[in-house]
């Protein structure tokens, strides 16, 4: 693994911010098959770490560990000093992730999903519709709000998944190749949204193969080397 700071992008604000995510020598193997070689990673509030590496190098496994969905075989992964475990309400409340296709109900429309997610996180009931509509407008998919998931194209599905993850409250955002299936304009749009999230103090860890997006959002780039 190699980690390096991105030239001229580490802001003084980032240095002053508290450490949110910390991975110390965390690796994962299943019955001798190495999914992730031991790796270190630190991410502070308001900082974006981009994971790079060839297919199968372990980026998704690392993101699953950071989401608390997978326990490392060796080493440790912590969120605000506590072990990452999605059964822990603190982990669930703080960490939002898009690692693989998320839960979607086939009998709910796009806007219904956002309202459901917001309500279960205790969002303000009176403004839920307005906020959901606003996010869809930001992602330029407001015209799809009354469609069911099976009526969306591949790229629209990706934007719908991103909308669901972005709509729930979180302090940490984990995204596995969010640029997948998006056209150039939508990638630029997503980049702007992520930069805004970072500026608002969110911690971002993103596996990304797009050099333009990486250049725009990364404070640090971590090369994940395969086993």
């Amino acid at each position: 693994m190699a980690a390096r700071g991105k030239q001229g992008t580490t802001t003084p604000k980032t240095k002053a911010n508290p450490l949110v995510l910390e991975v110390k020598g965390a690796g994962k193997d299943i019955e001798g098959s190495v999914l992730l070689a031991p790796i270190d990673l630190r991410a502070k509030a308001g900082q974006c770490v981009v994971l790079r590496g060839e297919n199968g190098s372990g980026k998704t496994t690392l993101l699953r560990i950071l989401a608390g969905a997978l326990e490392p075989s060796v080493g440790s992964a912590t969120f605000n000093g506590a072990p990452l475990d999605e059964r822990d309400p603190a982990t669930r409340a703080g960490v939002a992730s898009l690692v693989g296709a998320p839960t979607a109900y086939r009998d709910l429309t796009v806007i219904d999903h956002l309202v459901l997610i917001d309500s279960t996180w205790g969002g303000q009931i009176s403004t839920a519709d307005e906020r959901a509509d606003a996010l869809l407008e930001t992602l330029e998919i407001d015209h799809l709000s009354e469609r069911f998931p099976h009526e969306l194209s591949s790229g629209q599905q990706q934007l719908f998944h991103l909308a669901m993850v972005l709509f729930r409250p979180s302090t940490v955002l984990l995204l596995d190749e969010p640029e997948q299936r998006l056209d150039t304009h939508k990638r630029e749009l997503l980049t702007r949204i992520l930069v805004e999230r970072k500026a608002a103090g969110a911690t971002l860890v993103i596996a990304c193969h797009d050099p333009v997006m990486t250049e725009a959002i990364a404070d640090r780039v971590v090369d994940v080397a395969g086993a």
Binding site: Y105, L108, T109, I111, S119, T120, D129, E146, F148
Partner: peptide, 28 residues
Amino acid sequence: AAPSTRLRRTRLRARGRVTVVAERDLLG
């Protein structure tokens, strides 16, 4: 299972944390 296409304009109403899940099932 046949995909849903009905009542797309009927929105899920925002509710409390548990009630909204029950409301979701009713809308389904």
